[in-house]
Design a protein around this nucleic acid. Sequence first.
RNA 1: GCUCGAGUGGUGGAAUUGGUAGACACGUUGGACUUAAAAUCCAAUGAGCAGUAAUGUUCGUGCGGGUUCAAGUCCCGCCUCGAGUACCA
Length: 936
Amino acid sequence: MKYNFLEIEKKWQEFWKTNKTYNVGFSSKPKLYVLDMFPYPSGAGLHVGHPLGYIASDIYSRFKRHNGFNVLHPQGYDSFGLPAEQYAIKTGQHPKKTTLENINMYRNQLDRIGFSFDWSREIRTSDPDYYKWTQWIFILMFNSYYCSIENKAKSIENLISLFDNEGGEKYKDELLDMGYSFNQLEWNNFNTKEKSEILMNFRLAYLTNGEVNWCEDLGTVLANDEIINGVSERGGYPVTKRKVKHWCLRISKYSERLLKGLDKIDWPDPLKEMQRNWIGKSKGVSLTFQVENSNKSIEVFTTRPDTIFGVSFLTIAPEYEDISYLSSNDNKLDIKEYINEVSKKSERDRLSDIKTVSGVFSGSYAIHPLNGKKLPIWISDYVLASYGTGAVMGVPAGDQRDFDFAKKFKIDIPNIFKDIDISNGAFSDKTGFKLINSEFLDGKDYNDSLELIINKIENENIGKSKIQYKLRDATFSRQRYWGEPIPIYYKDGVPKNISLNDLPLKLPEVDNFLPTKNGDSPLGNSKAWAWNEKDKKVISNDKINDIDTFPIELNTMPGWAGSSWYFHRYMDPSNNEEFVSKDSMNYWSDIDVYFGGSEHATGHLLYSRFYQKFLYDLDFLNKDEYAKKLVNQGMILGNSAFIYRKSGTLEYLSKNLISDIKTDKVRIDIKYVDSENKVDIEILKKMDKDFKDSLFVLEDDKFICVREQEKMSKSKFNVVNPDEICNQYGADTLRMYEMFLGPIEQSKPWDTRGISGVHSFLKKFWNLFFNEGEINLSDTEPSKEELKSLHKTIKKVSEDIEKLSLNTCISSFMICINELSSMNCNNRLILKDLVILISPFAPHFAEELWSQIGNSQSIVEETYPKYEEKYLVESEKVYPVSFNGKTKFTLNLSLDLNIQEIEKEVLSHEKTKSILNNNNPKKIIIVPGKIINIVI
RNA sequence: GCUCGAGUGGUGGAAUUGGUAGACACGUUGGACUUAAAAUCCAAUGAGCAGUAAUGUUCGUGCGGGUUCAAGUCCCGCCUCGAGUACCA
């Protein structure tokens, strides 16, 4: 029988489907939850890079299933959000339609690879039964606040009853920071709107009117992690600052816990480091500077209070709130112009313009809290409004930015470092200096002065120690159509949530779902988008002036709202009463291994940890981290092909062939390039009749291509479709080859040529079972060599899967099959174990052979072979014999020999004698079972 | 700039955590089978030098030092590439 992979794979995929082989439920077996980050169905379909992580997780899941675990291994779709909507807009279709089509396409492609997903648990974030719970969590956040005393989220009702009974006393400091102060009587005299405004400062999901990242081309607001290098992550469009009323999640309250939690999870260090940097904790001091001739003051944050006597000016951000108060009449016009100019700049311009120092003098002065000197207050965009207090103390001697600023605007640069030359730049090291011109700190170094100055600052009550985080609250509103509606309506201007019983608040039908440049949300186009409080349902906008009917929030949620908690829903996907039942939560608990890309480090992987901690605080979950272990699979790089223009020719443009016209090379779709890296002239002419071949370098009527490795992407014309590989070699070959390419976490280039090695390995394996087309197995006792080869492989493969070192597993399979082939092994006991052994890697292949050798049950629950030490015990060792560390020859000796006996054997060996040449060795090192080294 | 990570044959990558560097595969070369091709199988394959040959010998894990009987692996100092981040006070 031939290895007919097409037939076999089809047969077993159907078998698994009809027999629901991979569906799981509660069980007395130990649980294991293995998850892949779910895909967003994009329209381009899968390329061979996508399934890399899925294959690894599938092998791991199947292996664990063979080892007696009840494995939850689900899959679904992140089907709301920008990617899905962008594709719909590009193709001019409704996102609902394209999303469905894309999901079907993905499913077909996934099914061909033979994954062990439990599809009965599939979820889609755009499904109302799913997003009902996404909305519910939002409402929970809206109705919660972060209790700084207990350090956890609590119901806002607690806070309200506290204010009702005691006023604001317990939260005095926090309220003062917000600009409030009230006792019980005063609180109770506030009206609904006033109370709502105060509480809004506490809610974990809150409405605010502030600066956001606005992307005009996408027509929406973006969160910080959705912006890369000042442009939008999706599409690369410019981003500017804009003041917009929007919803935010108060993730910043969780900064410390998000940071600490990293220590107890087994996630890749680089990824944890990225999250740490993103959270950006820094310890310092906040200092108050009085404004001259005024009762106002400016608070600054500094990590270098030791340099306080080097302050020669203060700088505030252009967005600083008290700015008009500080502006003197003489400078008002200049200041206005400067602020205007800054606000027009896009994020990218501001970044690329880093070297240009700009600013304007406010006209006011502050007083140095320790030496009483007059300090000019400047306004500059090198100070960020969103970090710290939006104001800094300028220490030109100790900070390069302050130095550049002072130099440009001819501000005093006092030196505070003994014998250090600061004429060309600031000295910002924390070591190697002694202070001068610093009164009581003179002669002290960093550590000594730090303690003294902090004591002084706190004693004199001019500031206090403070911990500052970079992490900012997450912008939650999107002015887009394809997302979860925010379940809020506005009753007399006060936001109210729709209650759980009335969810989901379904996305309305609209005539036009396109985003607008001015930021109006497409939901505004809906004719029925008003909430009737009495009937608890959405009704026509015409009724909006009726009693009990109010406008509903027009913005939708960001893409990450649905993906921040989806892993819980797989545990209990069709529960209509709870987002996940207590039983399911207690049994499946958390993810044991989570596979996904590191590009989500500061997005999904941070937001989801925040959601987890929040739901944990409210006792909905039993763990405050949701994934014990995370594996970042690397990218598979594609081969891009280019043909080069002859030098001196004019630029050639073609819509069909060329995507890279700015350089002297022209991108060619890789599928037209032959194995000699050439592309046929006729193909290009067929693609584009205007193609001017005279402009390019030719050889034998073919164009010479140059290959470069890049990320695989449809727009780069370098994708390899897994379907094609499945057609040509089969899914099992694809699965094994992807693993064979290299370590899972590494980026590596795809090279289709290499696949033949894995394919012929499978054929070789297959052929061990057959003789002239018939199954032909021997039922005798296996030989010692056969058993050794098998058990060596069992040991290596079991250990390596556990370590997720899957590339080396494939190697050991190859070694084993090579050995067995040369022994002409057809022993049933040996081959039976090998079939189970390879079944996680090549499941169709294994099922077929399993049934061929007479089994009627599926192989997936079969117990994985255990290796037995006794087959591996060696009695002899081939010792490498080195002289001064260089191996000269090998010597086969019994492992029973002790050091003295080995030494005797080695020294009496003729080669040793000839190398020693009658000299005595200085030293002989013998490590039994390992090496022999003779020093001469 | 800062913070991580990585540099091993023509290529992808192995190497029991200090113990025979280059497993396994691709590619290449030669051979067998075939009218031929594909498929399959066999052999060689880090570089150099000497030899008809078996073999011997030198160099070799980015570069320069060090520790050690022994270093791809540990330590110090550089170089290059990749990723993340970016006026964070």
